[in-house]
Amino acid sequence: MKILYFTSTGNNLYIAQNLGGELLSIPQLVNDNIFDIEDDVVGIVFPVYYATSPKMLREYLKKVNIAADYLFLIASYGSDGDQNALRIMTKTLEKRGMAVYYTNSVLMVDNYLPMFDMAKEKEIKDENDILNAINIIKDDILMKKEFKLSKKMFTNVPFIEKVLESTMSKKFKIVVGEDCSNCKLCVKVCPRGNIELTEEKPVLGDNCEFCLGCVHHCKNNVLNLNQEANPDERYINPNIKVSEIIKSNNVG
């Protein structure tokens, strides 16, 4: 079994690790120009961004060729939008001749800082519930169960993605403050290779995924958003090492 995953704070890597198999980071696959994936069982594990998936993953799905007897999709989400994101991805793959047999989702801590208070999120999302949900999905996959979340939410996919891009790029901005320690974590965890250190200060390029990995990992809160629910709180999955996220995303 091969699992393709996208992660910024570790949630989706945590899901992928618990499901097992050979784990393949999507940023690394893109960086290495690997678009042919083959195995008996192949899965894609990803976060929900505004009722769809990360832009990098959407771009990758337009090129990837997956040869598998059983293809499944798992989305992590914080409040809603999971079923719509799964529907969009299923439709994208099936249009390209790749049948999806199973889709499901896991409710986890949402790292979207403009909307969610990380302190409250960590209080209301129980780790045991998360692991139990993953284990149920794991059993389904081992049995090659056929199942799809079916609730229909939105239909206009281009509109959703247009709103996503305009919201991320115009309304919310990552602001660079002072006192950078030059740890380079922001550079290393960025899946797009979109950050450089100039005169020991992070400089963001024009290819931001808005995964907020750089903000959550910043030790001195040098990186912030212009609008945040709680500027003093950050979130990284406690079961995942920072070095694992760097290994997944460092494409510099």
Rank of each mutant, 00 (worst) to 15 (best):
residue 81 G to D: 03
residue 61 L to G: 00
residue 31 N to W: 13
residue 49 Y to A: 08
residue 111 N to T: 13
residue 66 I to D: 03
residue 135 N to M: 13
residue 27 P to H: 07
residue 122 K to D: 08
residue 136 I to N: 11
residue 51 A to K: 08
residue 139 D to V: 12
residue 100 V to P: 08
residue 121 E to N: 01
residue 26 I to W: 06
residue 113 L to E: 07
residue 138 K to A: 06
residue 94 E to M: 14
residue 110 D to N: 12
residue 27 P to W: 09
residue 99 A to P: 14
residue 126 D to P: 08
residue 129 D to A: 14
residue 105 S to Q: 03
residue 26 I to K: 08
residue 128 N to S: 13
residue 43 G to R: 02
residue 139 D to I: 05
residue 80 D to V: 02
residue 122 K to N: 07
residue 131 L to E: 15
residue 32 D to S: 11
residue 47 P to Y: 02
residue 118 M to H: 10
residue 107 L to P: 04
residue 112 Y to D: 09
residue 123 E to K: 15
residue 28 Q to P: 01
residue 75 A to T: 04
residue 131 L to C: 04
residue 87 R to M: 11
residue 123 E to R: 15
residue 108 M to D: 05
residue 41 V to L: 02
residue 71 L to Q: 03
residue 32 D to A: 14
residue 53 S to D: 07
residue 83 Q to T: 09
residue 31 N to V: 01
residue 68 A to N: 05
residue 92 T to A: 14
residue 132 N to I: 13
residue 132 N to T: 15
residue 94 E to P: 04
residue 80 D to I: 01
residue 104 N to R: 08
residue 73 L to T: 02
residue 86 L to C: 10
residue 133 A to T: 13
residue 123 E to D: 14
residue 30 V to T: 09
residue 69 D to Y: 03
residue 58 R to S: 14
residue 125 K to S: 04
residue 94 E to Y: 01
residue 89 M to D: 02
residue 136 I to F: 04
residue 119 A to L: 13
residue 74 I to S: 02
residue 110 D to R: 06
residue 94 E to Q: 12
residue 55 K to V: 14
residue 32 D to P: 00
residue 76 S to T: 14
residue 77 Y to Q: 07
residue 27 P to Y: 06
residue 50 Y to L: 13
residue 70 Y to S: 05
residue 67 A to F: 06
